[in-house]
Design a protein around this nucleic acid. Sequence first.
DNA 1: TTGAAAGCGCTAACAT
DNA 2: ATGTTAGCGCTTTCAA
Lengths: 365, 365
Amino acid sequence: MPATIRDVARASGVHISTVSRTFSAPHLVNPETRSRVLATAESLGYRPNRAARALITGRTHNVGLIVADIANPFFPPLIKAAESQARQRDYHIFVADTNEDATAEEELVLAMAKQVDGVLLCSPRMSNSLIEQCSREVPLVVINRLVTGLPSVVMDVGQGARDAIEHLAGLGHREIALLGGPRGSWTSREIRRSALLAARAAGADLTVLGPNPPTEDGGAAAADQVRRVGCTAVLAYNDLMAIGLLDELDSLGVRVPEEISVVGIDDIAPSRRTRPKLTTVATPTAAAGRAAVDMLLQHDNAPVARTARPGVGVGAVDGRRTTAQVTLQTELVIRDSTGPGPHLPADPGYAATAAPGPVASYVKE
Amino acid sequence: MPATIRDVARASGVHISTVSRTFSAPHLVNPETRSRVLATAESLGYRPNRAARALITGRTHNVGLIVADIANPFFPPLIKAAESQARQRDYHIFVADTNEDATAEEELVLAMAKQVDGVLLCSPRMSNSLIEQCSREVPLVVINRLVTGLPSVVMDVGQGARDAIEHLAGLGHREIALLGGPRGSWTSREIRRSALLAARAAGADLTVLGPNPPTEDGGAAAADQVRRVGCTAVLAYNDLMAIGLLDELDSLGVRVPEEISVVGIDDIAPSRRTRPKLTTVATPTAAAGRAAVDMLLQHDNAPVARTARPGVGVGAVDGRRTTAQVTLQTELVIRDSTGPGPHLPADPGYAATAAPGPVASYVKE
DNA sequence: TTGAAAGCGCTAACAT
DNA sequence: ATGTTAGCGCTTTCAA
């Protein structure tokens, strides 16, 4: 039986609305009264019930975060950053996992809708039109997808894929395979689009494989295919797949980077410990989490259209959300899983860059 | 402006209480009326507002989960399992991160208290008495700590530490170091207690180092100390520290397991990819997450002491929570980071077990 | 089987 | 500066 606003009012000899003001509009209450109320509240262990408050203010001070797989090492840094940013602004965060299932996404958004002020939708697999539909139920910020009309945060994987392809082409690779990601992934399409363009520009052949599940197993399963297409370099949709591929190639006795070069995308923590260490495109996931929370809450400060009394107050404030789209830079991190290919020009400059060893150009975020 | 119960009542020509019953006590409403109400609700996209419902029922259908560090690979599988289990029972889960800061724990529990039906407190660093105090504000299930009077889920790290020490002693190690975990960790104390006992029984010396931060850096930082104490084997508080130690020993040119054997605890995903592959004690983290949710919700089915009308209903139901303590088994996973020590008996049986290579006895959960 | 009415804890317009 | 009052969306007695 936690203390309510009424208990505090009684114990400090004021009306409940004075107690209410003490917490939600302190400047409207006499300093002396305020400190008295605060003192009794403290002694009773009173804390305003946010759910009750939300019922009338329309602000829950909660945020939803939907990801494909909590245990995928790509997400925890993003979740952590989002949680931290939210808490700093006194928001709590619901986390949900779709298990890579597109149909679970809509259901989760709808289930959360009434309890949150907005939802961060991470790497969605559902269609754009369904996303738009969801956004009519609850404010949405989309991460890792560009949806016109909706605020979104994406990493520039297009640039990243281009950098990766150019890196490989510069090393003398002309036959490159792209391990595509899961169906429905905007990031996967973007990588593909950009990689194809870059390969053409560099005079290299790009064979697209997939779609594949974005897991180690997915990468491992693609190893056979990779060998069959006769490429000398591979760009994977993400590090997890690249790591799986690395493992499987090792089991098959294929040497990396001597026989095949491998590049990942994301720069998750384990990628620094593979043998050879993985060359990859670092994506600023923590920054993305923070940015998404900021975008959501920025608009969340404006009072919501609510009328405590019928006939009073305005109609629906047509939330003029500036639907900003934020693109965060990526960075190619050259480690040891990429080396010279068959067409390496006799240019000592390239050879030096290609030499195995930590020639990393690395910038975090 | 989402549809409310009133909109549905109006549109289907019944009183709001009938709509309410349709959702919370369907058997009390005429089948025909029910399907009509359901149909209009569906067409209006109506979903009961859980916060409003909670206000009167006292059940939020939310659960809090507090961990030390979301990005620590130990936690994501636990979070994922807990979330999945909770959702299956139609509960949502708040996740919060303390950043390994003991003082943040209490604040987080209190901040969540009103919005959840209970909190899962993971690997707490605060004192038992503070935990008990928190448990008066909100039902608690503690994970990775035994607190008398409170339901808790622990992994049997005592057994795990013993297995590890016996494994090392059996390999002929007599000088073993224990890399202690963070201050305030029950698990760390438990490992220490059990490892000391096992070492004595096996006739080995155990040097305890620490406390250390439970991170790769913490493990790396301890490498110097490890060399100075002149041990031939190390048991680390967790895999993260073991991995950091492995890296640092490699940089220092110390060969593992030839010069020093290393054992971790947890069996997090990256431990399968270290070179050499890490011998470790597997802890069933996913099972722990599920068990904790089950324990919390099991008691949560009983109606809460609430009176919709003054004078009616019973007083406080003195929640007779069966404060069960669940202990989950651990399992030693022998990989390649442990090998023969200086006192290895000339027993071919031991030698075989100690031979490098995957002699893994591995059982997941 | 359904309707009426009270109230969960809180905020906000209005009155004083 | 404080009190009064209505009501957020919902459940739950009680009466019909």
